[in-house]
Design a protein around this nucleic acid. Structure first.
Length: 429
RNA sequence: GUGGGUGUAGCUCAGUUGGUUAGAGCGUCAGGUUGUGGUCCUGAAUGUCGCGGGUUCGAGUCCCGUCACUCACCCCA
């Protein structure tokens, strides 16, 4: 066998410049908006006891059945790399007791699912999620959808669509399940293999099957809300009313049910036409379940960062344009000058000026090339001549102009510098 | 998990019906007189042709396997 191929494992990859600059920008925007909605960040462990996920997501879900990275630790305990963020947050909240009754929390980080990678789907991917813990009210649900739309818009995502549905109250659930089985009983054998299995295990999931023959039969069914009681219907309508009041466009999609068992009442998904096969940008819903003996109710969503970035790139955004520019590159000629320039560079950095220099003792020409490649805004050249005269050559790399300055004049050019270097960044080509 | 496509220098790729020292563009580095970038000119370096096996006098080129990437299905973010 090959000695060792230390490459990243399938579906996981490094995230570095220039792409990382885009991530920083998105993260900063998201944190600001979360603060505006009074959400606090929570960082739960990347690994939890397997039961945290199996109990909350549901045993029959695809995530639990075939997509979790499960490992045994030294004590033989069953652990799992988190496939989503909600379960860990609920576990956290259940430990807070009364203090967790109205928690407003968000998270941002990697999730793991052992799937076959494809466009918009990785084994390690990243989600921004938010959870509002508290009693079920339509206003709380609408607020979350508004928050989510706010984030997507602030990131510059255009033309996303919010699909909304209800899974009904808990006591509607069995009624809908039975009604579905009854409605499909006759044509059961014409459904796809997966749906025949779902017919027994979880008939709701048949509703969002993409196989054509199933979709046709589903289209002929009445909307599931007809089998639900009046309270459940009143609840969704109220959510829709609040959204309208907030000017958040949303379309009702009676086939949307989502794949996780903990949802009840409002569920939604945001799609974008520019994504291809995996067109879901984010999803969320209201849930209720028992975590460690404590009931936890809440509403939340998760946005797939990789997919957001795919849309932004499709919209023409280039990560390279977001790379920060160094303010100044220091060029030396002669050992004495190099020594003094190292000290100069350090003092510039202490004042917040982004500075760098060549540390290999290369020719002035090579240093200038390096300065150009680094996209530095300015170059300071100080050799033996300048050292003797107590001056600096100060070159504007964009304009190509150069002037000889003394120390006060140099500082004068550089200290207000970051401001106009930033202003310049937007306009460079 | 199932199916399709791909895998040749840092990057994007070419490589004719298997034939002798494997190429281009971009990038990198160095020069174009002795202290100056981005344009131009000249030159240089870099490949276990994904990995393993097989067929053959001979394989980047054919066959098998394997790994990875990629796309679709499934499901989801």
């Amino acid at each position: 066998m090959a000695e060792e191929s230390l490459q990243p494992i399938r579906g996981m990859s490094d995230l570095a410049a220039p792409e990382i600059c885009l991530w920083h920008a998105l993260e900063q925007t998201a944190r600001d908006i979360m603060s505006a909605y009074a959400f606090q960040e929570v960082r739960t462990p990347l690994v939890e006891q397997t039961a945290v996920f199996t109990r909350s997501l549901g045993d029959t879900t695809d995530i639990v059945q075939k997509e979790m990275y499960r490992v045994l630790d030294r004590g033989g305990r069953e652990l799992t790399l988190r496939p989503e963020g909600t379960a860990g947050v609920m576990r956290h909240v259940s430990g807070l007791g009364q203090d967790g009754a109205d928690a407003r929390l968000y998270y941002l980080g990697p999730m793991f699912r052992a799937e076959r990678p494809a466009a918009g789907r990785r084994r390690q991917f990243h989600q921004l999620g938010a959870e509002a813990i508290g009693p079920a009210t339509a206003m709380a649900d609408a607020e979350m959808i508004a928050l989510q739309a706010h984030v997507l818009e602030a990131w510059g995502i255009k033309d996303f669509v919010v699909h909304l549905n209800t899974r009904g109250a808990p006591d509607d659930f069995s009624r809908v399940t039975e009604a579905l089985r009854a409605a499909l009983a006759g044509q059961r054998h014409t459904l796809c293999a997966d749906c025949q299995r779902r017919y027994n295990e979880n008939p709701l999931r048949i509703l969002d099957c993409k196989v054509e023959q199933c979709a046709e039969q589903v289209a002929a069914l009445p909307p599931i809300t007809e089998w639900m009681g009046a309270p459940a219907n009143a609840y969704v309508d109220e959510v829709l009313a609040w959204l309208e009041r907030l000017n958040i466009p949303a379309v009702k999609n009676p086939r949307l049910v989502r794949g996780l068992d903990y949802y009840q009442h409002t569920v939604w998904e945001v799609t974008h036409s520019g994504l291809g096969a995996q067109d879901a940008l984010s999803g969320g819903g209201r849930y209720a379940l028992n975590m460690a003996g404590r009931p936890v109710e809440g509403v939340g969503f998760a946005i797939g960062l990789e997919r957001v970035i795919a849309v932004l790139k499709a919209q023409g955004l280039v990560p390279e344009s977001m790379m920060p520019r160094p303010d100044v590159f220091v060029v030396s000629h002669g050992d004495r000058a190099a020594e003094e320039n190292l000290v100069l560079m350090q003092s510039l950095r202490l004042r917040g000026i982004a500075a760098l220099m060549d540390v290999r003792g290369r020719s002035v020409k090579a240093q200038m090339r390096a300065a150009n490649r680094s996209r530095s805004r300015f170059v300071i050249i100080r050799g033996d001549t300048e050292l003797a005269a107590g001056t600096f050559q100060f070159k504007d790399m964009d304009a190509g102009s150069q002037a000889e300055l003394d120390m006060p004049a140099l500082m004068n050019r550089l200290l207000p510098g970051p401001a106009h270097a930033v202003a310049n960044q937007a306009g460079d080509e």
